[in-house]
């Protein structure tokens, strides 16, 4: 009989499929309603505009809050986004759906605000990175619990812990994690949005994920059941 590796991850692990964020970017009401809304926007119809604000606004607000971490700035961003939509609906090609297009505009607006705001030096990510002993062996626990993410999410405090962990990741690393892993942009798209290289995105993404893993260490402790 074939022997198993000691835990279920190991060599049986396969890369995940599309991140959840991408599925969320689809139009919730289906593309038929969307075509009518786009036509309304193009015709300058006030009712269609209001409908678009009510339908897509809540999700855009979530994106703005995530990137900016601040309600007031997030609302400003959403307002700018809809104003930009109203002015430039002519540029909407219909290649992506309206929700995805709006999401990209709000993401760009939020990133612009973030750049303007970032004046103080960023917190260091060093404390979250792996440590090694003189023989180059990794420090840290040899054991962990085997609870799945779904099982961990059954626990009352998990969501709060995850949210706090994301908030504590130093800013420029957190932004990459949000865009790439949670919003579902590809590495190339994230690099374009942040005006940097794919290589820089990979390094930042890996460090951000590592920091999140460190911050969530209590959830993986073998004592936790």
């Amino acid at each position: 009989m074939a022997r198993q590796p000691l835990r279920k991850v190991g060599s049986t692990w396969k890369p995940p499929g599309k991140p959840a964020g991408q599925a969320q970017a689809q139009d919730p009401a289906g593309s038929k309603g969307e075509a009518a809304l786009v036509a309304g926007l193009r015709a300058g119809d006030a009712k269609a505009f209001e409908e678009v604000v009510l339908r897509y606004g809540p999700r855009l607000l979530i994106v703005g809050r995530r990137i900016l971490g601040n309600e007031e700035d997030a609302r400003d961003c959403v307002q700018e986004t809809f104003l930009a939509t109203h002015r430039s609906i002519g540029e909407f090609q219909g290649r992506s759906n309206l929700g995805t297009w709006l999401r990209r505009i709000v993401t760009n607006a939020a990133l612009m605000k973030l750049r303007a705001r970032r004046t103080r030096p960023e917190e260091s990510i060093e404390e979250f990175l792996p440590k090694y002993d003189p023989n180059l062996f990794r420090g840290g626990p040899r054991n962990a619990n085997a609870l799945t993410p779904e099982e961990l999410l059954q626990r009352a405090d998990t969501r709060k812990l995850v949210q706090e962990a994301i908030d504590r990741i130093p800013g420029s690393y957190r932004t990459v994690l949000l865009l790439r892993d949670f919003e579902g942009y590809s590495t190339q798209e994230t690099a374009q949005l942040l005006d940097t290289t794919d290589g820089a995105i990979k390094v930042r993404l890996h460090r951000a994920r590592t920091a999140m893993k460190e911050l969530l260490a209590p959830l993986f402790d073998e004592e936790l059941r």
């Binding site: 991140p19 995850v162 969530l216």
Partner: peptide
């Protein structure tokens, strides 16, 4: 697991 938790939340 940390990535999966972040995505899920």
């Amino acid at each position: 697991r940390a990535i999966a938790l972040g995505r899920q939340v």
